[in-house]
């Protein structure tokens, strides 16, 4: 199986601070992967390098054999941790924008999901609550037929019911050939849907394992995380 994402000696420093140090990693196709680590462990840095928003200090990252750039942006659908929707836009405008930007965007799928949330195409984004905006953003990202979805903290800011909705959206739109990488520290909520987990701490890779392997040892991912990251 060709890896969809591969890191070789990936290192990123910000001045004297090492955000990532010597990460070696391979992620295969057709999986839901959890990128797990405490706050400040390097999760977002790793995702930002994969989306070409940051460049590595040394080492490299490859997506489907390519360096992050124009080619990879066509196949990677990215949900940043921040809200980037323009408040003056209507839902219809943002759908139009995604359609213009991404060849693989499926507007019917997006409209259908928005309808189910009772969000109208005429709604102005500034009238939506924070949680609803996050859902809209996720719907846009999941409506692309990408090969790799990079979701940075998709469930961080929302209530438990909305969390369930978001996880259902991820499962429901998941294409078995695509890989979904979810970064989060809310492990208990996501562990049911993960195939594979990656633990990182202080910029280092601590563990990369299938979830079944962890559970076959009679442990939950949440339990193992607490063991590994005991303060």
């Amino acid at each position: 199986m060709n890896p969809i994402l591969e890191c070789n000696g990936l290192t990123k420093t910000f001045g004297p601070k090492k955000a990532l140090s010597d990460i070696n990693l391979k992620i295969g196709q057709g999986q839901i992967v959890g990128l797990l680590g405490p706050n400040g462990s390097g999760k977002t840095t790793l995702i930002k390098i994969a989306t070409a928003l940051l460049t590595p200090s040394s080492g490299e990252i490859q997506i489907s054999g390519m360096k992050p750039g124009l080619g990879t942006k066509k196949i990677v659908s990215y949900l940043p941790e921040k809200n980037y929707l323009n408040d003056w836009m209507r839902v219809r405008d943002i759908i139009g924008m995604f359609k213009d930007f991404y060849e693989d965007f499926n507007p019917e799928k997006a409209c259908d999901m928005l309808k189910r949330l009772n969000i109208s195409a005429d709604d102005r984004l500034k009238t939506l609550s924070k949680g609803t905006k996050e859902k809209v953003q996720l719907i846009l990202v999941m409506s692309r037929e990408a090969k790799l979805y990079l979701l940075d903290e998709p469930i961080g800011g929302v209530d438990p019911a909305a969390r369930d909705y978001i996880l259902e959206t991820i499962i429901g739109n998941y294409n078995p050939e695509a890989t979904v990488l979810i970064s989060t520290h809310l492990i208990y909520d996501v562990e049911k849907i993960l195939d594979h987990v990656i633990f990182i701490n202080e910029g280092r890779l601590v563990l990369s394992s299938s979830v079944d392997e962890i559970r076959e040892q009679g442990k939950s991912v949440d339990g193992l995380f607490r063991e590994v990251f005991r303060c």
């Binding site: 999986q31 839901i32 369930d164 259902e168 499962i171 998941y174 049911k192 849907i193 195939d195």
Partner: peptide
């Protein structure tokens, strides 16, 4: 598989 996975809120690969 997809519907069963959704019902159980698990990964479709696991249901498969």
């Amino acid at each position: 598989v997809r519907d069963l996975a959704k019902e159980a809120s698990v990964n479709p690969n696991t249901m498969q």
